[in-house]
């Protein structure tokens, strides 16, 4: 344990012919991404408070919570259509309210607080959030802006450091990763909020990192093996970096796993999306980004060799 490594993912001489399955990989990815897009439009993302606006109050009651009482206390304060549900234990109540342009969330949240204390004396408010409609629209815009600009900057950076074929295939792969993550969010009903934007950006950063390592090796091998066909060369590069790819994704996965298990309500959603993203990002480096590079670069990156037969 303190000397030579005890375990290895793959042997050094491994040579898996990944490019043989390139169309299968691309088609699977395209199908999953299209399915995700359909999910995005119907039923769509569950928007969190940050982006939808409204009120969320979490309270812990002294005894078991009486939902009927809480509902009637809210009604007495003229708060209609409130979602009252339990979360966690018997003593925990979650109250949700939507908001439109005309709702004074600031005043309503104080009434919700009062209603809870009236209905369940001794209750403590664990968390109370109110986001006005104007703020939520702005937060959503900023979140999407951060996502969009990150993609553009990643494209620019890779373009600057590599060639455009690398940049384009990386960004196309990232967009495919992104759509799948959105599909995952729709299916799991995790709320899409600012923390999720952070998760997605981290996934994008990680996924890019993974692609850069493979591309870096492709670039090096392009110089080293002047006559090797691009297809073979890409396969070789993936195999050479395979232990690293699996090693790093495992450590990131291991780091995110405890967050999913122990992170509590506010972080476990974030962590599950991260875990999903790590798997997607790692596999897309091999099965999407590399085949795309082969498709785009077949003519240009290796002009002097005959085109690769399917």
């Amino acid at each position: 344990m303190f000397g030579r490594p005890l375990l290895r993912f793959v042997r050094s001489e491994t040579h898996i012919n990944f490019m043989r399955g390139r169309f299968l990989g691309l088609i699977t990815s395209a199908v999953l991404s299209i399915a995700s897009l359909i999910l995005f439009f119907h039923p769509g993302l569950t928007l969190g408070l940050d982006f939808k606006g409204g009120i969320v109050v979490e309270a812990r009651t002294a005894g078991p919570a009486d939902f009927g009482k809480i509902r009637s206390a809210l009604a007495a304060h003229h708060i209609e259509a409130a979602g009252v549900q339990s979360f966690g234990g018997d003593n925990d109540v979650l109250i949700r309210l939507g908001a439109d342009e005309n709702t004074n969330t600031n005043a309503v949240i104080d009434q919700v607080r009062q209603a809870i204390t009236e209905a369940q004396p001794g209750a403590t408010v664990l968390r109370a959030d109110a986001v006005g409609a104007s703020v939520s629209a702005e937060l959503l815009r900023n979140g999407l802006l951060a996502l969009g600009l990150s993609l553009v900057m990643i494209l620019a950076y890779i373009w600057f450091r590599f060639e455009w074929e690398f940049a384009l295939s990386a960004v196309v792969t990232l967009v495919l990763d992104l759509t799948k993550t959105i599909g995952f969010l729709v299916l799991t009903h995790f709320e899409f909020d600012l923390v999720m934007v952070a998760a997605i950006l981290t996934i994008l950063g990680y996924s890019t990192n993974d692609k850069v390592v493979v591309y870096d090796r492709v670039r090096e091998n392009l110089r080293r093996y002047r006559t090797m066909p691009l297809r073979e060369l890409i396969d070789l590069s993936i195999n050479e970096t395979l232990n690293r790819t699996l090693g790093t994704s495992t450590t990131v996965f291991l780091a995110a796993l405890p967050l999913a298990i122990f992170g509590g309500a506010s972080l476990s959603g974030f962590a599950w999306v991260m875990l999903f993203g790590i798997v997607v990002g790692t596999s897309s480096s091999i099965f999407i980004a590399a085949p795309l590079l082969l498709l785009l670069g077949e003519k240009r990156l290796r002009k002097d060799t005959k085109p690769v037969a399917g």
Binding site: N142, A146, L201, T202, G205, V212
Partner: peptide, 13 residues
């Protein structure tokens, strides 16, 4: 690249 993505998040978050 990871750095770029998180600077964006810091600016807009």
């Amino acid at each position: 690249t990871a750095f770029l993505a998180h600077v964006m998040l810091f600016v807009f978050g």
